[in-house]
Nucleic acid binder design. Structure first.
Ligand SMILES: [Mn+2]
Ligand SMILES: [Mn+2]
Ligand SMILES: [Zn+2]
Ligand SMILES: [Zn+2]
Lengths: 153, 153
DNA sequence: GCTGCTCTTGACACTAGGTATCATTTCGTG
DNA sequence: CACGAAATGATACCTAGTGTCAAGAGCAGC
């Protein structure tokens, strides 16, 4: 019943895309699965550091390259936080279009279904003459656990 | 009839906020007015370079600090582009809440009024328990002039 | 199992886009 | 004009990456 992705699914996706199933890619996939898909958020740097524990020979550039590939393959979802940092989370199966409500204190992520109506995009394209190719929506706030903390400093 | 902001308005705003009307601030305000408020977009670096022509003694840190202040004072609006770069434009008077449709090729900016309904934010806050403090919406595409150019490279 | 071609890697240099520090300068009030 | 606070410019530093490239490692064909 769990929709959590497996290491093999990730490696198969590399293969299916004509890429190789290398040791760094396996090490990173293993770390991601170890963390679970429970909306755990991490930066590329975070993931690199974590992988270093088990596989200290993995280079930083490789970690960043692999995060990019995993995002392209649809295994990672990139989220922009209020402070401008970019982080990721593993997507569970059935990844429909969605946006995120994020905590500016602890970086917690809540997916939200709110979006702009297709008709509104149509109207914009019509009025401006633009060919619209994408959009980004991020909502910021404080999660229940972080609302008491007065330190916004 | 023009709602374009003047150098004096900017400097008065600094004064009103208890800040000084210094030479770098004047030089930067003059450059902004020279460019006009016609949705001309620029990065902090762009503005610094332009100011250098007339006032080569203005430091880079000062340029960045001043852009931040002008944004805080409501004279500049920050826009995030599809490639992740941050740029600004001078806001005309009567700055209502709005978002931007931007050209991923030439960085042209078109303001749009589309947004998420307040009720939707309410619902999100209710469901998640978050205290929502802000949001960001950016729409990307190609302007009429850039649609032929096949070079997405 | 070995060969060989290619993709991939890890090290490292480098970059964009800023921010922190701090001695020096300059506002602008009295 | 004098003086204290605010602001500045030079400089060093920083984060979050990307470009380069010789060396290493998958994997298809034998
Ligand atoms: Mn998501
Ligand atoms: Mn605007
Ligand atoms: Zn939180
Ligand atoms: Zn364009």
């Amino acid at each position: 019943m769990s929709k959590d992705v497996t290491v093999d699914q990730m490696l198969s996706a590399f293969e299916a895309a004509g890429m190789r199933t290398t040791r760094p890619r396996r090490a990173m996939a293993e770390q991601l699965v170890a963390w679970g898909a429970k909306e755990k958020e991490f930066s590329s740097e975070d993931l690199w550091h974590a992988v270093q524990e088990k596989a200290p020979w993995v280079g930083r550039a490789t970690a960043y390259r692999t995060v990019q590939l995993l995002q392209d393959l649809g295994f990672l979802d990139r989220v922009t936080f209020a402070d401008g940092t970019e982080r990721y989370h593993v997507v569970a199966a059935g990844h429909e279009h969605h946006h995120h409500l994020t905590c500016e204190m602890c970086h917690r992520i809540v997916p939200v279904e709110a979006c702009i109506a297709p008709a509104a995009f149509e109207a914009m394209a019509q009025q401006s003459g633009f060919a619209i190719s994408g959009h980004r929506l991020e909502i910021f706030g404080r999660c229940p656990d972080c609302q008491d903390d007065a330190h916004s400093c």
